[in-house]
Amino acid sequence: MKPAEVYKLLIDRFGEDLILAYVETRNPYIKINNGYVQAICTFLRYNPSTKFAFLSSISGVDYPQRNEIDIVYHLFSPFLNTLCVLKTSTPRDLPELESLESVWKVANWFEREIYDLLGVRFTGHSNLKRILLPDDWEGHPLRKDYKEKNSYHDMETMRPDPLKVLREKNEKSGKSQ
């Protein structure tokens, strides 16, 4: 079953309000309505003709120009040997989506990572905390407009340019000699 056929199957089941578009890229993706992620994924996972048993990854992509964050789900079905890419977007100011934890347990950590690095909230998540960064970190680094603070707990986050340091050191020692 090709991704285009998965799209047809989804359109027949959910209609055009939920399944928005089919976009041809290297790995074609299916754009879906952001309110029905859980229902669509549950269908794809348990439907005997698709059996997308594996959630390969969830990624988040920031698009400041259109003020949206895209969340991309990569589903893999070893039975069909097909990769299904679902994409949905959520507003950048108040990013919120359904958690997929009830469909795949592995979504727990993927979603925590996205919450950590992009600030997307997942409703129904059991433990939505930062995972890679410290709990008291400010900001979400993978957003395009993220600027790192100069210090964290009085520790400098920027190191001086080593070449500059070396040059200054050489100059100093040259003067003293």
Binding site: T25, R26, N27, S57, H74, L83
Partner: peptide
Amino acid sequence: ENEVYSRVESARGEMGVYLI
């Protein structure tokens, strides 16, 4: 402008790169 999700079987299993 394009996107791809490529995967290999690494020593620790599936390793994927999603590239836009």
